[in-house]
């Protein structure tokens, strides 16, 4: 679905130039970035085809948004500056909700997991986008904005702005930004935490542009100097094949449903790793086990203070 000013399309040359810049500067030791050829190929291939795979559902979601806009509660003018301020906050809060659901409920995790499947964290990782987001239906979360009265084109543009913003924070090259910026905005440091698989960092920092939502809703975690992020999944993938990356969790859901259909609701809407007997790892169980280990074996600085 084309919109008058698609920020992602406009930013594509910037994406390409900055990935090239990060690779070359890292090669000559001018900044911190780790690239691996097959990993990069997978990320970029996923990015290339993600726009195509989204097309079938883009029409449905836009039609739904248009219908709701036709029955809107208010009329919000696209030409007013205050309306853009309002849609910025409304869209960013919607993104927080979407992103949290995408990590905490398996059906949406199945669509989002590919973005976290790289064991690297560089600008190409940002482009490792979903092929099944439309199928998972999370786009419905943005529909209330059109019902409120934001023109669907306005919502789409703001979604694009958010996506472009989130591109540059996928880097290890920027360590910390000024305190005031880190306090308000999502930054490379905050998002490194989000991509980490260390139990302490799991399911944290869901923000799109503003980190304030995580601070408000109790999901914020600072990146700690003493614990470097380890990137990837709790159970990393053993393949670079984009098809396996895109569909492995869907296949897992299908296999679980066949194995035990009476637990369908849990398999589909439970947290990733949920199982009827609790034998698998969830973020909550991993965090609890980690916390228990901290109590049994406190860190050296705590031992010295005791």
């Amino acid at each position: 679905m084309k919109i008058p000013t698609d920020p992602v399309t406009l930013a594509t040359p910037f994406f390409i130039l900055t990935v090239i810049g990060e690779i070359v500067l890292a090669r000559y030791g001018k900044l911190k970035a780790h690239y691996e050829t097959k990993d990069t190929a997978t990320s970029l291939t996923m990015g290339l085809f993600s726009t195509l795979s989204g097309l079938p559902f883009a029409g449905v979601s836009f039609a739904g948004a248009m219908w709701l806009y036709h029955h809107r509660l208010f009329t919000i003018p696209m030409t007013a500056a205050w309306a853009w301020v309002l849609v910025f906050f409304a869209e960013d809060l919607t993104y927080y909700l979407f992103h949290r659901l995408s990590h905490e409920r398996r059906i949406w995790w199945a669509a989002h997991v590919n973005h976290h499947s790289s064991q690297h964290y560089n600008l190409s990782t940002a482009l490792r986008q979903t092929w099944t987001g439309g199928l998972a239906g999370a786009w419905a979360l943005w529909l209330p904005l059109s019902f409120l009265g934001f023109p669907p084109s306005m919502v789409l543009i703001e979604k694009g702005v958010s996506l472009v913003y989130q591109y540059w924070i996928h880097t290890e090259a920027i360590r910390r930004l000024p305190k005031w910026f880190e306090a308000v905005f999502n930054t490379p440091s905050h998002h490194r935490v989000h991509h980490a698989r260390n139990p302490r960092y799991l399911d944290r920092n869901y923000a799109g542009i503003l980190i304030i939502w995580d601070r408000m809703f109790g999901t914020f975690q600072l990146e700690l100097d003493e614990e470097a992020p380890r990137y990837g999944l709790v159970h990393n993938l053993g393949a670079f094949n984009p098809l396996r990356v895109a569909f492995h969790e869907w296949v897992g859901i299908g296999a679980d449903l066949i194995r035990s259909p009476r637990h369908a609701l849990g398999w589909i809407f439970g947290p990733p790793g949920w199982s009827p007997d609790g034998a698998r790892d969830t973020s909550a169980s991993l965090k609890a086990a980690w916390a228990a280990r901290q109590v049994q074996a406190p860190s050296p600085d705590k031992r010295e203070a005791a």
Partner: peptide, 19 residues
């Protein structure tokens, strides 16, 4: 799409060279 695919190929080639 074709230009993007060419850019992807170039970036992967660059990553291979750099690593």
């Amino acid at each position: 799409l074709a230009v993007s695919a060419a850019a992807v190929a170039a970036m992967v080639g660059l990553a291979a060279w750099a690593t």
